[in-house]
Design a protein around this nucleic acid. Structure first.
Lengths: 217, 217
DNA sequence: ACTAAATTAAAACATCTGTTTGAAATGTAC
DNA sequence: GTACATTTCAAACAGATGTTTTAATTTAGT
């Protein structure tokens, strides 16, 4: 047998591609099984439901990424030196780019999926994520708080969600943005380039001085 | 006749509420007509199709907002003084808040719809917007370029889309964020408060210094 | 090789979707 | 009040969706 990819993997590979480019709601199981060259019933047999398939697709990346991030966060927390915000944010770069080893174009795939996950489905993915990786997230928030000691916790909360919006939206519409950039500016930016553009933008926004005008109105 | 709201308005009112909280794809015509207490066929009779209904819902706000913004942008462009970025971004505040006159909770509704529009549907809303209001958008980009003369056009392109992501995502998940903020920080932030928090964050991100590390990697 | 479990396959299921139809009701003008 | 156009309504339509069922097939253990 030349190609030993199992049915489950064929489904996951096809699903992540379609999910990333069309979103979860707008991708049908028939599209997936057709692209995977697999019987329709195989999805429900192997994964139970479409919802669980979505989680499995994300889990394939999260199970690699999150432990790596957790380790990096812990390491940074242990070192007593004052970490600046850019350093904290830059922690994401290497683990994200290493997703390319998990899968061809893994980084781009995962980030697009993340974008879709936060906009398409309303509740169950957010719950899934917080339930499994809430601890890791807490460490990150702590690092940001240490890097921005002048910001109240509520302000950090808002600004981190603002930043999440930037990342998620940019990745969800990544394809369209890359096409425009290529057409208008003759730029061919890989996902790595986008990440390197994002970091200083996010760092500046999160660390922007906290004035009274931010709250009074 | 006590209530003279026409069938079309009843549909638009119900539709915008459901669209804002559940997205376009996850809202069915039957939900809309049921909430509007109107016959199912009325949507296709009055609006033609669901797609056109979506556009009509947005148009009710855009037709008020965009001319006002265009006027403000033109005014700022005409004045020869150097406009700083915060001033340019602050132009949005008043016109946005005045959408509350168009409709109860109009500002929140519109911004949530905008968020949904950019994430849910893939192409046709973006086209619709650019086609109708592209000129106004160009003026805004020009103002930003004047305020950030050191940034190359391509960098401004990326940062403005980063910012769009922040706004759109924040507004799409506005309800969830407000609930968390209320529970964790005893904060009760109206949409106006969120806008005032957004401006400095966005201004800092867009105007962050352009270094070689942004492009080299 | 035989048996039992795991997997694949085709078909049907039940439900939901946006849209269309054709007749009833309502409003409007002369 | 009659004729006409507009609007409402219940019903059906055609298609797509996720899921289930039942039988055939393949795989693995002994």
């Amino acid at each position: 047998m030349v190609n030993k990819t199992t049915t489950q993997d064929k489904i996951l590979d096809a699903a992540e591609q379609l999910f990333a480019s069309s979103g979860f709601a707008d991708t049908s199981l028939r599209q997936i099984t057709s692209m995977a060259q697999v019987n329709l019933a195989a999805v429900n047999y192997h994964f139970g439901s479409k919802k669980e398939l979505i989680q499995s697709v994300l889990q394939r990346y999260l199970s690699v990424l999150m432990p790596r991030l957790d380790q990096e966060f812990s390491h940074l927390l242990a070192s007593q030196k004052q970490n600046d915000l850019t350093a904290v944010l830059s922690v994401f770069i290497k683990p994200l780019l290493e997703l390319n080893k998990v899968q061809h174009h893994g980084t781009r795939m995962f980030l697009q999926l993340l974008g879709r996950g936060y906009t398409d489905v309303q509740g169950h993915l957010r719950w899934f994520f917080n339930h499994h990786y809430g601890r890791t997230l807490d460490k990150f928030v702590l690092l940001v708080q240490q890097a921005c000691p002048d910001l109240p916790a509520s302000e950090i909360f808002w600004r981190l969600h603002f930043s999440l919006g930037t990342v998620v939206f940019t990745m969800a519409s990544n394809q369209a943005l890359q096409e425009i950039a290529a057409a208008d500016f003759n730029e061919n930016v890989e996902i790595e380039g986008v990440i390197h553009r994002l970091i200083p933008y996010l760092a500046a926004g999160i660390a922007s001085p906290f004035t009274l005008s931010s709250q009074a109105h």
